[in-house]
């Protein structure tokens, strides 16, 4: 039994099926990749799992059905996510961004804070920032960071909530090859430390090297699944990625409605 299991997960937008009957399984302590061309339904899958879009089908988290829970409650049970376009809280410092995710508010604490705000302990969060080389930026506003650093802050914020499963939406998009490899190493380290990860990325090189298992989506349909070696050899995947219909058709947008700045899929060597 996996940490995160979906069965028959479907999402439609005005009659159009963005995700169609998707069965996915993330085993405890494993790194599972979810790949597919732009507009394939990857982000929508994460949205459905984390409760940001109404979906049919069931989502089991650590054995319990969470499909009735709000996104907040899903996050609190230990289902974390990052966003394709970081979505940081720009008015808060990097450390405060992490604190939002790690701290709960209750009425008693709130009343006490009105008179005497607690000095919340941030040492654990500092450890997270250090592990991502962000320690120097703790008191900086996200708007003053580079794109790569912002993406890392997004990951750090998700980790601050101490998730059991982390869904990452293109954490390496917009990073250069070196940054992206470092990030890959870090994700792998997290998984080796016991975290279960569902990773979306366009960087096929990255995904094929670090993942334990892969799912491939196209037009909302699962077209292949298997180990990296199996996926490399899969002819359907190769056509989906190198086929003619690329470059047109879908209108991929980031979560803020802006065009996604990910690397074009076709360029990545699939069969290497």
């Amino acid at each position: 039994m996996g940490m995160l299991t979906t069965s028959g997960l479907s999402v439609s937008f005005g009659g159009k099926r963005a995700v169609d009957s998707f069965d996915l399984d993330v085993k405890a302590g494993s790194l599972v990749g979810l790949i597919g061309p732009n507009g394939a339904g990857k982000t929508t899958t994460i949205d459905a799992i984390t409760g940001f879009v109404p979906a049919q089908g069931s989502v089991l988290f650590d054995g319990t059905d969470i499909s009735g829970l709000s996104s907040t409650m899903r996050a609190r049970t230990g289902l974390g996510r990052t966003w394709q376009s970081s979505e940081l809280f720009d008015d808060l410092t990097v450390m405060e961004n992490l604190q939002v995710a790690s701290e709960r508010v209750d009425v008693r604490g709130f009343l006490r804070d009105l008179f005497r705000p607690r000095n919340d302990d941030v040492s654990e969060l500092m450890v997270i920032l250090e592990s991502l080389d962000l320690a120097d930026s703790a008191d900086v506003l996200p708007t003053d960071l580079s794109h790569g650093q912002r993406k890392l802050v997004g990951v750090a914020r998700a980790l601050a909530a101490k998730p059991k499963v982390l869904c990452m939406d293109e954490p390496a998009a917009g990073l250069d090859t070196e940054e992206s490899q470092t990030l890959g190493g870090r994700i792998r380290a997290l998984v080796d430390g016991g975290l279960s990860v569902l990773l979306i990325d366009h960087d096929m090189g990255l995904v094929l090297t670090i993942c334990d298992y892969l799912y491939v989506l196209d037009f909302g349909q699962l077209i292949a699944e298997g180990t990296p070696a199996e996926i490399r050899a899969n002819s359907k995947v190769i056509t989906a990625y190198l086929g003619e219909r690329h470059g047109g058709g879908s209108d991929p947008t980031g979560d803020d409605g802006a065009p996604v700045d990910g690397a074009p899929v076709g360029e990545v060597g699939v069969g290497e």
Binding site: T50, F52, S70, S71, T72, A75, R76, G80, R81, W83, E87, L88, F89, D90, D91, L92, E96, N97, Q99, V100, A101, E103, R104, V105, G109, F110, D113, L114, P117, R118, D120, R157, A158, A161, D255
Partner: peptide
């Protein structure tokens, strides 16, 4: 200066991201 203020500014900045952070 306290937790609730950070949560409030998180909601102000981005409701979806705030919910994903467990707010």
């Amino acid at each position: 200066r306290s937790r609730i203020g950070r949560h409030m500014l998180a909601v102000r900045a981005n409701e979806r991201a705030a919910a994903a952070a467990g707010v």
